[in-house]
Amino acid sequence: MRAATMTPVMLTGHITRRTAYKDLYNLSDSTATVFIKINRKNWPRNLTVDDKTKVEIVGKFDREFVGFDKIKVIDIRPAN
């Protein structure tokens, strides 16, 4: 991904797995897999997700000097 840090993004895909790092997940679609960070406060209480659930996320791209580039999720909801 070649975006400036804190660039707003909206992505649709499937959360395929939770990584070993706190609040860090993989979001995949038919073209790529990206890391997304979902803080507990941004996860809706009534939303249950598995790898077959298509979701839409709104967030900001977070470019890291060291470590993983990721999307910081502001909102997550089921995709239509």
Rank of each mutant, 00 (worst) to 15 (best):
V55T: 13
V66Y: 13
E56Y: 03
E56I: 00
P78F: 10
T16Q: 04
L27M: 08
V55G: 09
D75M: 05
K70A: 09
F35L: 09
R77S: 10
Y25E: 05
F61N: 05
D50H: 11
A3H: 01
N26F: 12
T53Q: 06
R2P: 08
I15S: 07
A4I: 07
K54H: 02
A4R: 06
K54G: 00
L11V: 00
S30A: 07
T19H: 04
I38T: 09
V66M: 15
D29R: 06
L11E: 00
V66E: 15
Y25L: 03
D75G: 00
V9H: 05
A20N: 06
N80Q: 14
I71S: 11
T12E: 03
L27E: 07
T19N: 01
R18N: 12
T5D: 06
G59K: 15
N39P: 08
R63S: 04
R2F: 13
D62C: 02
L11N: 00
T12C: 04
Y21T: 13
M1C: 11
N42V: 14
Y25P: 05
R2I: 14
A4M: 07
F65E: 11
S28L: 04
M1A: 13
Y21C: 06
I76E: 11
K41D: 05
K41Y: 09
G59S: 14
N26V: 05
P78I: 11
R77K: 15
M6R: 15
A20S: 12
F61K: 04
T19S: 06
I36L: 02
T31C: 00
S30M: 04
T19I: 08
P78V: 10
V66K: 15
L24M: 12
W43E: 02
G67S: 07
D50Q: 12
A32P: 03
S30E: 06
N42I: 10
T16E: 05
I15F: 10
V49G: 02
E56L: 01
L27V: 08
V34N: 08
D75C: 02
P78D: 10
T53A: 00
V9L: 09
W43I: 15
K22L: 03
F68E: 14
